[in-house]
């Protein structure tokens, strides 16, 4: 299953709640303010490495660029809207809004 998260982990518990619920093997796509989670060297309010042990984390490139995030955490797969559509075709999706 694909889970989308659009809130910053610094102001919302959305990513934390999503990562507890998402089953091993599922994908989490960070979009909009959700991409603030991928800034390398950021305080680990939510540990992406822990999440990536059994899930795949994606982040939307246009949102990363729009926010001036220059260094993305290793292991995060950066995709565009095309990639978002492909993920939404591969499996059902749920939006953690």
């Amino acid at each position: 299953m694909l889970h989308t998260v659009n809130k910053s982990p610094y102001t919302h518990s959305t990513l934390a709640e999503c990562s507890k619920v998402a089953t091993p093997g599922s994908s989490i796509l960070l979009i909009e303010d959700g991409v603030f989670a991928v800034q390398a060297g950021g305080a680990k309010v939510v540990d992406l490495n822990e999440i990536m042990k059994d899930k795949t984390v994606y982040a939307l490139e246009p949102d990363i660029k729009a926010r001036g995030i220059s260094k993305v955490c290793e292991g995060v797969k950066v995709i565009g809207y095309d990639g978002f559509v492909d993920l939404a075709v591969e499996s059902k999706s749920h939006a953690w809004v």
């Binding site: 909009e32 809207y81 095309d82 978002f84 492909d86 809004v97």
Partner: peptide
């Protein structure tokens, strides 16, 4: 969500456009 106040309307539009372009 409503327009402008939230990015949701923009992301939804960009997603929809990409999905149509891929023939969905």
């Amino acid at each position: 969500e409503g327009p402008y106040n939230h990015q949701a309307a923009d992301t939804a539009y960009n997603f929809t456009k990409a999905a149509i372009a891929k023939g969905h």
